[in-house]
Design a binder for these strands. Sequence first.
RNA 1: CGGGGCGUGGCUCAGCCUGGUAGAGCGCCUGGUUCGGGACCAGGAGGCCGGAGGUUCGAAUCCUCUCGCCCCGACCA
Length: 565
Amino acid sequence: MRWSQLFIPTLRENPAEAEVASHQLLLRAGYIRQLSAGLYNYLFLAQRSLNKIQKIIREEMDGIGGQELFLPALNPAEIWQESGRWTGMGANMFRLKDRNGHDLCLGMTHEEVMTSVARGEVRSYRQLPQIWYQIQTKFRDEPRPKSGLLRVRQFIMKDSYSFDIDAAGLDAAYDKHYEAYCRIFKRCGLEFAAVEADSGAMGGSQSSEFMVRTDAGEDFIVHCPSTGYAANLEKAVSQPQPPAVPDPEGDLTPEEFHTPGFKTIDEVSAFTKLPQTSQIKSLVMAADGQPVMALLRGDHQLSETKFSAAIGGPKELRPATPDEMRGWLGADAGSLGPIGVKMRVIADAALEGRRNMICGANKDDYHLKNVTPGKDFKATYADIRQVVAGDTDVITGAPIDVYKAVEIGHIFKLGYKYSKAMGLSVLNAEGEEVTVIMGSYGIGVERILCAAVELYHDKDGIVMPASIAPFDVVITPVNIADAAQKEAAQALYEEAKKAGLDAVLDDREERAGVKFKDAELVGIPWRITVGKKLAEGKVEVSERKGKKSQDALLSEAIALVKAGI
RNA sequence: CGGGGCGUGGCUCAGCCUGGUAGAGCGCCUGGUUCGGGACCAGGAGGCCGGAGGUUCGAAUCCUCUCGCCCCGACCA
């Protein structure tokens, strides 16, 4: 292709609205343009990259026996009602009505549709196992789209679903996906980590997320370099640091004291001259409208995910409102505590065995000291605490890290959630009806592109991995008006195409600097510059990564690039 | 949904406080000179200042409402 004919609208300056590197660079390099919040036009370059990513995905999915389908993005409400997710998905699902007033939605994922396909057709264990996948547009009415392509309202997802007769079959399908995903991300040139994850609203037992480390990400990963333990913060476990000062000895009796205006843990800590680790933080939550108290050590944060699991996974979980707190406990947040309360109390495991601590008195501007969990109040202990940097590995005690990451893939063992709810069963060899066990496996296609840009860029632009770059090589005649250069460049371009390279000829009537800058911004992995050394029969071959270049004979240039890719 | 910010040629922004009828740089078009790292000269096109209402002799500028976008938080298969 000839650059002069292409639509590659590069910008010299960063658009004002872009914050993260991938957003800025994809805009500047002319890959994408925004249509609206969370909606992007994928221009020529983005489309080429996304096509390459999808090609890799298809090859690997086909490689594990996946069969590609294509299901409607527009779904009837009925199947979502059957699975219970019509209400479960809440406001995150785009909903609409057709002309007859029937409820429809735009699919966020396709468990329901896939299950409905299977239940109509799959009758016998002999037809299992199956792995079906599609590459489809998904819709989510995000409360806050952000960070360019990282969090959007419409995006491309490869989603696959496995159907098996038993748990061993599911395990095998899950493992196949795990390995295929590793190959996909590796082929896309990404450095990534597979981590233990919470299965959240998807339901199911086991799940792994594939994460790329970047500050632009929204997830936090807990990682122990010495043991290899890696998990999403929602799910991660660790050993907390010990309390900053030891608890007072003895079976002391709780004693009220006045704390005028001291509400936060920090304020009470400063007032009592006892560290945060000596305080009990009492949080009141409403679980399906019922009050539940969560207790944590003063310096710890509640993990809502763990807490939700600890109380049996309520449909709705939220912090209590100030009015609710006052009604239930007779005091405002800042003076609450577990003594004498009538609600369920879940205490974090880090409080077990502690004694003579400080907590709120359920009376405004009063706290209690000498409060001992177990003795002065009853609570169920559970791990409801969010891991923080500085904690240590639960088994070895080795230090752990917490870092930000973006999720590019997620695999789940769904179990029977959808097949049971929607009646997907087959006859086994004994002629008995058994419910099919399912898995579900997603990849965010654009997120691979974003992650690559986040990971690989420099001051001049994108350093796109060759496997997903829109072009392999750009042939750049320094001066297109020079007939010899023009001719040589044209010949090189033809040769590159014959050699199977995705080549573009930069035949624009621009100065060399402009063409170099654009090629670097866009992130084309290789450039062959046809310039003054042409007189000696030479051209310059340069690699975007590391900015290395060398002179090569005209006849050798293409082979050199080919070898590099 | 709470908090903050911003909407002025294609892009980045100035002008607004202190009303007087719109500017710069880049980009774009034409011609010329240049030609290995975002050239230079000359000429030119392009904006009813997000929208509506109001105040005023007069509104980009002041007031009210509204829409959109971005950021922080909440939320997030």
